[in-house]
Amino acid sequence: MPYSEMMVAPMRAELSSIGFEELRTAEDVERFMENREGTALLVLNSVCGCAAGQARPGVRQALEGPVKPDRLGTVFAGQDVEATAQARSYFADIPPSSPSMALLKDGEVVYFVPRHRIESRSAEDVAADLTGAFQRYFGAPAPA
């Protein structure tokens, strides 16, 4: 059963305030995922304090680095049920978990961070994991 939207709103805002597009419907997700050009980060947000409490600040820190995805999208697991199911259908061979994150390049999932790699870690560790993946899969920044 979904949580009160009043409770969830700040958790949504933690990502939307740093540039994430909130994908609230299956159609929103389809539009985001069918744009296969370039790089993207899709975050499956979650209420769970045990893991999401580190995930969102970790994402924010990672996006402060020099290499970052072209597009940012998020669905809220347990809240936007159809949108979440639609998102998971694009990586159906990976067991579902939330929070979790998918890095996409030209429409393909190149890196996935499942819940169990978030929940035992600090925000700094989550950021370091993501930053490393951004550099590895999204390439070095253009020279200044």
Partner: peptide
Amino acid sequence: MSPDWHPERHELHGITV
């Protein structure tokens, strides 16, 4: 340091084990 969300539970509460 993350906050202790469920202090009445074991420290592994919520963790995949």
